[in-house]
Design a protein around this nucleic acid. Sequence first.
DNA 1: TGAACTGGATAGTGGCACTATCTTAGAGCC
DNA 2: GGCTCTAAGATAGTGCCACTATCCAGTTCA
Lengths: 204, 204
Amino acid sequence: MQLKELSNATGTSPASIKFYLREGLLPPGQSVHATRASYSTEHVKRLELIRALRQIIGLNLDQIRSIVTLADDGVPHLALLAQVQRVVLKLEPAVGEVERTAAADAVVRMRGWPDVRSDARDALDRHVAAMQHVGIDLPLELLDRYSGAVDAIAGLDLELTAAGDDVNDIILTAAVGMHMHSQLMLKLLAVAQASHAIRTLEAP
Amino acid sequence: MQLKELSNATGTSPASIKFYLREGLLPPGQSVHATRASYSTEHVKRLELIRALRQIIGLNLDQIRSIVTLADDGVPHLALLAQVQRVVLKLEPAVGEVERTAAADAVVRMRGWPDVRSDARDALDRHVAAMQHVGIDLPLELLDRYSGAVDAIAGLDLELTAAGDDVNDIILTAAVGMHMHSQLMLKLLAVAQASHAIRTLEAP
DNA sequence: TGAACTGGATAGTGGCACTATCTTAGAGCC
DNA sequence: GGCTCTAAGATAGTGCCACTATCCAGTTCA
């Protein structure tokens, strides 16, 4: 497959493909000779991954690069997933120890999750602290419902990614899955608010 | 309060404040005479709102303007909340009728929410369709847990906003609340995934 | 043989959110 | 009254990012 065909196959302009090649997001094609290279279905998948991460999740090229370089280095899937999480959670490296929160502790205990330090756990603790800082309190019952919901899908997601064939698919599934579920909550919350508002108005 | 003082009070550069004034995000100060205007605590709050919407939620200036102009026009709080929802949900005007999904119908029935068309409901239907399109299925049990969680907080949020004193506070509470809850899910999901991954590894 | 396409290099574009500069005009002090 | 200081208002410039366009020399295939 030549560059032009790759362009047609993915709906990405040749100029953009060249740009991604320069930026190291897309591995170079098999060089046939000085002025011809051939691209595989791997390239199609990678390109689709790049565009999904950009357009659906809104990652920037640096973030995407930090994921795909790991994939190209052939790191284990779990390490790859950890990086996807770091990026999607917009986790910047912690300065010093992240303080544990009662809310996160409670969730871990409720769900029987292993009580270990991880990037995700740090992110949770920091976010809970941020919510409380702006005056949003998190009653245990709410945490129970939230964590029950995510607990249910985490196992499922993991199966999918563990069984995964292609690295690009694994990344895509993990990143898009997380994003979609979080957005689903946003929409559900909006409908719930609208519903409550209607009720409040109709029965004053 | 003069421009310089407003700048000091909010940590925003005078140049940026001038820019927001030009852009119509910040209402002009009370003009004392040709070269002096005075700003109030209202301006401080508005400026804090603008910066929170930009930096925490990542809205662009167009989106922020679409909210604050409504606030300045003094529209009813419910209409204001609807606009905040539209922006935070990144809802673009529907082209034609949005097709209802079984999943959203099920949620509405489960929760006993009023079954009416709304922007939020449209957003939910479209999002559910998008999730199914990428191969994420939503079992009833999951929808039950998700919607149970949001149902619990929607009432609470509404009380807060209805009781609200300042429009800027209302907008801030609503927007930040939605965003924070959605991000909380993201973090919880990451912890759940990490937990499941650890378990899977420890007991192979 | 020549139009079409390639890889590679370099430069340009457009959008966005500021930021810097310039001009004019009152304010306060002597 | 004159001088300096600073504010407001208008206009132009900046920096970043993700492309996009142009140019060139080499190859291929109709």
